[in-house]
Simulated scan of single mutants.
Amino acid sequence: MLEIGMTAPDFHAESTEGPVRLYDDYKGKKNVILIFYPINNTPGCRKQLCDARDAQPDYEQLDTAVLGINPGKFAGHQKFTAKHNFGFPLVFDDRWQIVANYHVPTFSGMMVARTVLIVDKDMKVRYINKGMPSTQELITAIKEINESSQSL
């Protein structure tokens, strides 16, 4: 697993909103919440991603974007997004390369363990949670990241 303070690995991947390039799209511009989730359209994943959708206005005010990442089928990502109108990209990690580069735990190599990271504008990992943190916990972490960045 990556550790706090490490540089986040760059990635280029397809998503439900077109190509995503972590460094090109976000470096120097926005913090990024990376939500690695197990399976499209299961109750826990639906709750987690719908919570992120509902908190998007708060995240945007804090210069923070959201990316959901999962190695599931691209068509499944599209259906899941259409059904819940997420408003943020679900990244298609078909070769499990992003999962591997971020050292996200898996269950027998068959399913991603729910993991949330926050990467700051300098592409440093600033927060890691192996679970489903609340929206308030994420907002608090982002505020701390933004405050510490301003004091540098």
Rank of each mutant, 00 (worst) to 15 (best):
D58K: 15
G87K: 10
A100F: 03
I33P: 01
S15Y: 10
P9T: 08
F74S: 09
E60K: 13
N101G: 09
N85F: 02
R46D: 02
E137S: 12
L138E: 00
T106M: 15
M123Q: 04
R114M: 11
P9K: 01
Y23L: 05
Y59H: 01
L34M: 06
I139S: 05
T106V: 13
V116G: 07
A8Y: 00
V119R: 00
P9V: 07
I33F: 01
R46M: 09
T7N: 11
K29D: 06
L117P: 00
I35Y: 14
S15C: 11
V32T: 05
D25Y: 07
G44N: 14
I98S: 01
T42I: 07
M111H: 09
R126F: 02
P57E: 10
A141H: 06
K124Y: 01
P19M: 11
K83T: 06
L67F: 10
G5N: 12
V99A: 09
V119Y: 00
T140L: 08
V91S: 10
G68Q: 13
M123K: 00
T135V: 15
K73E: 13
V66G: 08
A65Q: 08
M1T: 12
D10E: 08
L117F: 15
A8I: 02
P43W: 12
F107L: 14
T42R: 12
G5D: 08
L22P: 02
D25C: 03
H77D: 03
L90M: 14
L62R: 15
S15P: 10
D94H: 13
D94C: 10
L22M: 07
N85G: 06
H12T: 14
P71G: 13
F88Y: 15
A141W: 02
F92Q: 03
R21T: 09
I4K: 08
D25H: 02
M132V: 15
S108D: 13
F80A: 05
T64V: 03
I35K: 12
K79C: 02
N85D: 12
M1F: 04
K30F: 15
N129L: 06
E14I: 08
L67I: 07
G109D: 08
T140S: 07
D63T: 01
M6Y: 07
D51P: 00
A75L: 05
L62W: 06
Q48Y: 09
M132K: 11
W96T: 13
L22N: 00
G18S: 03
M132Q: 14
N70A: 14
H84Y: 15
H103D: 05
P89Q: 04
K30N: 14
Q136S: 10
L62G: 03
N129K: 14
D10I: 10
K27A: 08
T42E: 04
R53C: 11
K83L: 06
G109T: 12
W96M: 14
D122V: 02
A82V: 01
H84Q: 05
D120L: 03
W96C: 09
P71E: 03
T16L: 09
N101V: 05
D63F: 09
L34E: 01
D93G: 11
C50D: 04
Q78W: 07
N101R: 03
Y26F: 15
N85M: 00
T135R: 15
K130V: 03
D10A: 06
Q48V: 01
T81C: 09
T16G: 07
